[in-house]
């Protein structure tokens, strides 16, 4: 085979900005897998890519917005969700997807997450849960498992992590799922499903930080972590999210937990506009 004549393109070439490579993520990081699954789900869903907006916050996962050939907004720390809401309210035809990390979405941005879920605004939120603050060097976060070691819990984490699917469900999300980076095909399928859903959808992806969390907690390198995730995941679709908390000694329960319907915020806003103004709007158009 003559390699010089051999031209092969990556299936995601037109969605990933190759001129922005190399990316900032560490070798073996799971964020690349999540990005890959997300983009494949977009392609397989046949969505007009001019109508997709990616909004992310700050942190390792927040950098996803930097590498995609889509409209994208890399926002302030924790504020991805309200900014995404602003975009969605003005142009409801856009598919607005928030992809960010556990610290961004559930520590500094936690209040916005629960309120957006309560309002049932039509957004898909994908949280890459790496169990720590990666970009700043591996500090404890709101999802760090009990007793884990991080740079700011050198004697073990004495706090308890959020059960994110339970939190999302209690706050009002209409679609809630969790996978790990060891189940990419299931993840693609779930993202596709969530993209079709009208309302606040939430997918947690477990992707332990290889460089920091996995090292401090003796989980091994990328392949050991993947093996660990595969061997310790149990698929339980439809299970009560109250039972899916993450603990070092417990199996990781994955699957699609919640799929339900409630009135959606943006549709309700446009219904009120129609009632009060008689205008049947497809988007918000500024006067003047």
């Amino acid at each position: 085979m003559n390699f010089e004549d051999h031209e092969e393109t990556h299936p995601l070439d037109n969605l990933i900005l190759s001129e922005r490579m190399p990316h900032i993520w560490c070798p073996g990081c799971g964020i690349g897998i999540v990005l890959n699954c997300y983009l494949r789900a977009l392609i397989e869903s046949n969505i007009d890519l001019n109508n997709v907006v990616v909004v992310s916050g700050i942190g390792c996962t927040g950098r996803i917005a930097n590498y995609v050939a889509l409209d994208s907004f890399h926002t302030t720390h924790g504020r991805a969700i309200p900014i995404a809401m602003g975009v969605k309210i003005v142009k409801p035809n856009l598919k607005v997807v928030v992809i960010s990390g556990d610290g961004d979405l559930f520590a500094i941005g936690g209040n916005h997450f629960i309120h957006a879920a309560r309002r049932n605004v039509d957004l898909l939120v994908i949280c890459v849960n790496n169990f720590n603050y990666g970009m700043t060097g591996g500090q404890v976060g709101p999802t760090t498992p009990f007793q884990s070691v991080t740079t700011t819990t050198p004697y073990g984490n004495i706090e308890h992590p959020f059960n994110l699917p339970y939190l999302a469900t209690a706050a009002g999300a209409v679609f809630v799922a969790r996978w790990t980076i060891a189940q990419p095909f299931a993840l693609i399928k779930t993202i596709k499903k969530a993209l079709q859903k009208s309302g606040f959808s939430f997918i947690e992806v477990i992707a332990p930080c290889i460089t920091l969390y996995a090292r401090y907690n003796r989980l091994g390198g990328p392949s050991e972590v993947l093996k660990y995730l595969l061997q310790n995941s149990v698929i339980k679709n439809g299970i009560d999210p109250a039972l899916v908390d993450i603990d070092k000694d417990k199996k990781i329960i994955v699957g699609e937990f919640i799929d339900r319907d409630r009135p959606e915020l943006v549709k309700e806003l446009y219904r009120i506009i129609k009632e009060q103004s008689g205008l049947e709007l497809k988007s918000i158009v500024s006067g003047g």
């Binding site: 926002t75 900014i83 602003g86 975009v87 142009k91 918000i284």
Partner: peptide, 14 residues
């Protein structure tokens, strides 16, 4: 925090 964030998103949507 979210009020100003929302209007920034709205402005970037036009």
């Amino acid at each position: 925090l979210s009020s100003i964030a929302l209007i920034i998103g709205a402005s970037y949507a036009g």
